[in-house]
Design a protein around this nucleic acid. Structure first.
Lengths: 361, 361
DNA sequence: CGATAGACTGCAAACGATTGCAGAAACGCT
DNA sequence: AGCGTTTCTGCAATCGTTTGCAGTCTATCG
């Protein structure tokens, strides 16, 4: 069916071993035969069979990326980055979707090692620590975004405490004092860390923390709806809301639209993580960028390092943090500044009256 | 490192061949040894090595899905569907991202066959017909969403003519006579087909086609911006816009927001393809659903069929069409009905005045 | 009781590459 | 010329399976 090494060897009238050495460049061949073989191989359209090679060498040129889903924008860019980097190095990416489900994760992991993957980047559920730990003996593994406390795996994390701090401080600098926070469940690391960053910024600014302004929930739009309602129904509603997760943002936007609350005039809105449409939205939504692209790149770097180091690429560092950064767009406004009378923003003046409750803050 | 067939055979005091036959269930073993081996294999934690097996059988249990990107919502759900289906059957999905770039597509295709994939579902760029055709001899292939005219590959397509027709008719039924269309480039099948559906609906309703209402462009937000501007700047702007692609929708929404055009009161908006946030947007955006989920499922069905049929799963059918359907939400309104005075919609009354131009239609 | 079919089992050769080892060739040196 | 190096090449084993073929064993039947 396809051209094998044997065919090349025969055509060149040498043994298979010589052909192999010449083509893999293991240097033990004379310059002349080397070049001759390369030429013949090209002429015949020879392509080494990775399966056969894998059987002998124990490698597959396959690297797996295991994420929870593809609807999350961060995972999308990570997948694209990882794929691009790996391809450039001659690896194929096996993209697996675990659905944040421990059982699925576990199944996937076993079939992946069956396939003798050369490396693995995984966003762990946190429930398969033992298995991961065992696999780590055979395969270089790097954890991404979340860490699995049951393992001592190298992990590349977003700097959530700093990101949340940066965002909150930004709002404070704009004069906001009552800042609502919609954050992830407190039994997740990211949930806890984002809260802590928020709290730190408040403390630094000498603002006392008001727990009625803090709401935690799952990373789904519904959370945004219910939390936004609670916040806006407060006797003294916040003048700004920091939504520490992009799924919930959908819900918040819906509530503000329903109540005719103008952003940023009546309410400033800041989100965590970017989505492609945020900058197209009117007003364009300011965000704290968790650096998905950087995270993915670093994870690949670390993985490649481990793969090269053959077993002990352990540099002592266990946790890498990728800095977050603030991207200012149009959804946050200084609380004391008068509403700009720019054309196309006239909406705000009209809606302000009807959304008196929150505008009065 | 890991348990091999030999280990199992030794533990059971039989030959490797017997072990192989017992575990693969090739029926040529006695009931007793069969069960004994299965038990022993399980005890030892034996897992067959797909690489070794693949070398002998020429199969890899790998099926590839090649799409353009992951930012497109349709591709996301397709990837998730394909992955789920395949996993259930013991295949691993190789997800590849081709970026709609012929060169990348070509490269990817060759490394995929190198890896001896058992099947391929591809959204073709259309520029590598010859290569695809050649590969089809070795590997079952199904094209998805787009067809490659240079091949005679089995293809699963969305029913774009019908979808566009459905959407346009819906708008007509709502009393619209001047319906703007923002559609894909006319050198793509989908671009042409969606236009044809639109035209057909118009003709059926006895509305004469007005080419100033039809704009074609790339599938990017910028297209939406420029086309929307052109449409709204028309002496007699349309009362409804049908955006036949979801990326451009972003741009259209931005323009309407900038100009304070209320949807659906001042302008009805209908989009092609769903995005997760469309139903959370206020107003929730009505769409024509291209049936990404169904498309993916059908593609998998067809591929599995071909894989089973070993070479001639050709049932004569070359093109499968998956029906589109209309999902009515809140962004389209009957042109003659008075603006509902529902609470939370008061915005429209104010903005109508400032966006007089388009409101006057 | 012997022959023979039938049911299992094992040997050994594949699949397509890599690689240790030993032999061959070429070369320089005394 | 003889010897030792060095450089290249080929043989053959190996990776973990599957599978054709031949051999063994049991059972059945005449």
């Amino acid at each position: 069916m396809s051209v094998t090494l044997k065919d090349v060897a025969q055509a060149a009238r040498v043994s298979v071993s010589t052909a192999s050495r010449a083509l893999t460049g293991t240097g033990l061949t004379s310059e002349r035969t080397q070049q001759r073989l390369v030429r013949i191989a090209r002429e015949l359209g020879y392509r080494p069979n990775p399966i056969a090679r894998g059987l002998k060498t124990g490698q597959s040129r396959l690297v797996a990326l295991l994420v929870h889903n593809l609807t999350n924008a961060s995972f999308q860019v990570m997948a694209e980055v990882v794929q691009a980097r790996l391809k450039a190095l001659g690896y194929q990416m096996l993209l697996c979707i675990g659905g944040d489900d421990p059982q699925q994760e576990s199944d996937t992991l076993t079939t992946l090692v069956d396939h003798r993957i050369d490396g693995l980047i995984v966003v762990p559920t946190g429930k398969n620590g033992a298995q991961l730990k065992a696999l780590a003996k055979d395969v270089p593994i790097v954890c991404l975004v979340r860490c699995d406390d049951a393992t001592d795996l190298e992990t590349v994390l977003a700097d959530d405490p700093q990101g949340a701090y940066l965002g909150t401080r930004h709002l404070i600098e704009l004069g906001h004092r009552r800042i609502g926070l919609i954050v992830g469940r407190q039994d997740t690391t990211s949930g806890r860390e984002r809260l802590s960053g928020y709290v730190r910024a408040l403390r630094e600014a000498g603002i006392t923390r008001d727990d009625t302004l803090i709401h935690a929930g799952h990373y789904v739009p519904e959370t945004g709806v219910t939390c936004a309602r609670k916040l806006l129904d407060l006797p003294r509603p916040p003048s700004a809301i920091f939504v520490a997760n992009h799924e919930a943002t959908l819900g918040v936007l819906r509530v503000t639209a329903e109540r005719n609350i103008a952003i940023p005039d009546d309410l400033s809105l800041l989100c965590y993580e970017d989505m492609p449409w945020f900058e197209w939205h009117r007003p364009a939504i300011s965000i704290v960028d968790n650096g998905a692209r950087d995270l993915a790149n670093l994870a690949v770097d670390r993985l490649l390092h481990r793969m090269d180091a053959k077993g002990n690429g352990n540099d002592g560092v266990r946790e890498y943090r990728v800095g977050a950064r603030l991207i200012k767009r149009d959804s946050c406004r200084h609380i004391d500044a008068p509403a700009p009378a720019k054309s196309g923003k006239s909406k705000s003046s009209s809606s302000k009256s009807s959304a008196a409750k929150s505008a009065k803050v």
